[in-house]
Nucleic acid binder design. Sequence first.
DNA 1: TGCGCATATCCCTATACCAGCATATTCTCT
DNA 2: AGAGAATATGCTGGTATAGGGATATGCGCA
Lengths: 138, 138
Amino acid sequence: MQPQPLIQIYNCLCDETRLRMVHLLAQSPLCVCHLQDILGLTQVAASKHLAYLRRHRLVEARRHEQWMIYSLPAARPRELDWQLRCLQDCLPTHPVFRDDLRRLKARQADCCWVAEAVGAASTATQGSVKTKPIKKPK
Amino acid sequence: MQPQPLIQIYNCLCDETRLRMVHLLAQSPLCVCHLQDILGLTQVAASKHLAYLRRHRLVEARRHEQWMIYSLPAARPRELDWQLRCLQDCLPTHPVFRDDLRRLKARQADCCWVAEAVGAASTATQGSVKTKPIKKPK
DNA sequence: TGCGCATATCCCTATACCAGCATATTCTCT
DNA sequence: AGAGAATATGCTGGTATAGGGATATGCGCA
C-alpha cells in the first residue's frame, strides 16, 4: 500500500501476538491450528491476527484441503527482510520467543511441514505440501 | 520496559509522524521548534509525540536555556540500531522523508546544531551545544 | 445430501491513541 | 516581581483495534 510499507510493517509487528506469529512463520509455514496451539490463542484471535497480517501483506495464505496454510511471502520487500533479520538477531534471547520455538520443534513429530522446515532447516520458502497437518490438538 | 524492547520500538515507529521525527533525529539533535517547523506540526502535536518517544526511551531530552533539545540516546540497544540502519536504507527513496531532509538542510544557516550535524556529518552523537537555536520561526 | 472440522466474519464492549483547545510549567530577561 | 517565549499536560471526541460469543462459509467424508 501507499502509506509507507515500513509503517505497515511496524503496525503489524507492534503487537506481541503478531510478532510471535511472524517469528514462527519465519521458521516454517504453519496452519492456523498450529499457530493457535503454539501461541495459546483462541480460534478467533488467531484468525483475526492472521487476517490483519495478510491484509498488510506480511503473510500469504493458501488452502490445503480443509486447512489454511500461512507463510511469509516468497517475494519480500526490502523493508520486511530487514525486520526478519532483526528478529533473527534480537528475539532468540527472550524467553517468550525461545519457548515458542521449543513448542514449534515439539510439533515436528506431528506435522509434516514443521518436520520439513525445522528438520531440513529450509528457510520458510514455500515447498509444496505433501501431507496433512495434525488433527487439531483439542 | 519489559514488554520486549522491540515491541516498544515498533509501537513508536508505526506512526508516520514519529517515524519522521526519529529519522530527522538520526541526522542531528533538534529542539522542539525545529521539529515542529520541519514537520509542519502544531506545538501540541510535536510535544506529545516527543513525550511518547521519550517515555519509550527512543529519544532523550536535555534542556538548553529555554529550549528542549531532543536527540537519539547515546547508548542504544541493539534493537534500535537495527531500526536506524533500516531507516537509513529504506526511507531516502520516499518523497516525504527526502523532503524532510531537504528542509532540515535548509535550516543549516539558521541553527548551530543543524549546521554542526549536517555540515560536519557527525552522526547525531550529542556534542556539547555551543549556541542557540533560531527564534521560533513564526 | 448431511455432518463435522477448520477457518472466517459479525456484533458488542473495552482500551489505546490522535488531534485540537485550553491551561500549566519552566526559563530568561527586564 | 512581571512578562513573554518555549514546552508540557489535562480534557474531550473520534477512530482503530483487541477479545469474546455466536454464527456463517468452505471442504472432505459417509
